[in-house]
């Protein structure tokens, strides 16, 4: 009798352990069909799949370096920064989502001074929404995460301001709110939140516009110098352009697989 009870308890204990494994492992790395956040590992998060918004397997952006002029660049920057309540700070603690940069800074390893127009010519830079984003890898709270459609998002509610993502980003695409941004925003747009001091922010490929079925602000005002579309759709405009023109991406040697392509 004593022995059988002992045996029963052992088996019951093992069984409980076994039954708890499945939900635990699912919690640890939830992704795919069940798009809830994994308990431990950073996982891909759901993107809207239905409704009136725009959907894609992998959102990418094309920037035509030849069509961009300083005037168009400024228009894109203004459209983005005004509509996203990006504060206008003059110091080196400034905030930028999209900005113009000379070619030799954008492609330090890939430029030489004899290219047409010289390397002082500028182009636009923004978050690359990498396929393998180092910022997502290092974030200790999953405040920055990747959606299934490739967009790297920020959860401003969760960011603790450790700035590890800024150290990890090889493109300098992230900005930190060193101060309260509100006094540096002229007229805050009510439809989009401002940020608060102590969080990191960056371009989000206008995910809020995609949800409403609209293209990103910069693409809309770029006079055709920028394109936006689905890399996984062979019939998409961006795929056709990529197939017909030569394009490069920033720092390809790092294996981040940027989602922003530059047409040369």
């Amino acid at each position: 009798m004593k022995n059988t009870r002992r045996k029963f308890l052992k088996v019951a204990g093992l069984a409980v352990l076994g039954w708890s494994m499945r939900p635990a492992s699912r919690l640890m790395a939830a992704h795919g069909a069940q798009s809830a956040e994994g308990l431990f590992m950073a996982s891909k998060h759901g993107a809207p799949k239905h409704g009136e918004g725009l959907h894609a397997g992998r959102w990418i952006m094309l920037i035509d370096t030849n069509k961009l002029t300083p005037a168009i660049e400024q228009k894109c920057i203004n459209a983005c920064h005004t509509n996203h309540n990006v504060p206008d700070i003059e110091t080196k603690q400034n905030i930028k989502w999209i900005w113009a940069e000379p070619l030799h800074n954008v492609f330090p390893e890939q430029m030489h001074e004899n290219i047409p127009g010289g390397t002082e010519r500028t182009t636009l830079v923004l978050c690359n929404h990498c396929t393998n984003p180092p910022c997502v890898r290092v974030c200790p709270t999953k405040a920055t995460f990747q959606r299934e459609d490739g967009i790297v998002m920020m959860d401003f509610h969760r960011c603790i301001g450790c700035r590890y993502c800024m150290a990890a980003c090889p493109y300098g695409s992230r900005s930190f709110n060193f101060m309260d941004p509100r006094p540096h925003i002229k007229d805050a747009i009510p439809e989009f939140p401002t940020r608060t001091k102590g969080v990191v922010e960056k371009c989000e490929f206008c995910s809020e516009r995609l949800a409403e079925g609209k293209l990103p602000y910069c693409v809309e005002v770029s006079e055709g110098a920028m394109m936006f579309g689905d890399l996984e759709d062979p019939e998409s405009e961006v795929r056709k352009v990529l197939a017909s023109r030569y394009s490069i991406r920033r720092k390809p040697e790092l294996g981040t697989e940027p989602g922003v392509y530059y047409l040369i």
Partner: peptide
Amino acid sequence: LGSPQRLMNIIIHPT
């Protein structure tokens, strides 16, 4: 930390 009031997020959302 920029937002020390959220320090515990490292434990609430272990990564």
